[in-house]
């Protein structure tokens, strides 16, 4: 072997690792392998409670690993997605993928600041739904077409920041 050919062989990069392609049976419909479950939990259920095995103890024998559970709170206050890591009769190991708090109901006490009164004051352009500050009678919002719009405007008001 000549000198130049020897140099060339040393410079050649090492052979790339051979890619083993997936076999046909590795791919399947998600529905054929796993289930998507929908669970309704009582209100005031905490995020931590979702991960505890006890909550799922009655139903967990139906789960398979890598099933997904979408969790709906009974009062529509939140929504969560869980991934089942491992499950069997009476125990379940889940991972919290996502948790969203749904928007608060503006009509309920949770969205309404205290000390304001909202009322419908007739069909005129500047009346309709109005918000009055009870302490000094100042009209904070007027002329809104719905209670929600009036409340949203009140919550945007600079005095409530």
């Amino acid at each position: 072997m000549s000198k130049s050919m020897q140099d060339h062989a040393e410079e050649a990069p090492p052979a790339a690792e051979k890619i083993v392609p997936l076999v046909r049976s590795a791919l399947n419909f998600q529905e054929a392998r796993n289930n998507s479950w929908s669970a309704v939990v009582p209100r005031h259920t905490s995020k931590e409670r979702l991960l505890q095995s006890g909550l799922w103890s009655v139903v967990s024998d139906q789960f398979r690993a890598f099933d997904r559970i979408q969790v709906i709170w009974e009062d529509r206050s939140a929504y969560a997605e869980l991934l089942v890591i491992d499950a069997g009769r009476g125990f379940c190991n889940v991972l919290l993928l996502n948790h969203w708090s749904l928007p608060a109901l503006l009509v309920s006490t949770e969205g309404l600041p205290p000390g304001f009164e909202i009322s419908y004051k007739g069909p005129d352009q500047d009346a309709q739904w109005c918000v009055v500050r009870i302490a000094d009678g100042v009209m904070m919002v007027k002329g809104q077409t719905s209670r929600d719009a009036a409340l949203a405007m009140l919550l945007d008001s600079a005095t409530l920041r």
Binding site: R76, L105, S108, E110
Partner: peptide, 10 residues
């Protein structure tokens, strides 16, 4: 539905 939610959350 809104009335239901209102009662459920309170």
């Amino acid at each position: 539905r809104r009335l239901r939610d209102l009662v459920a959350r309170s």
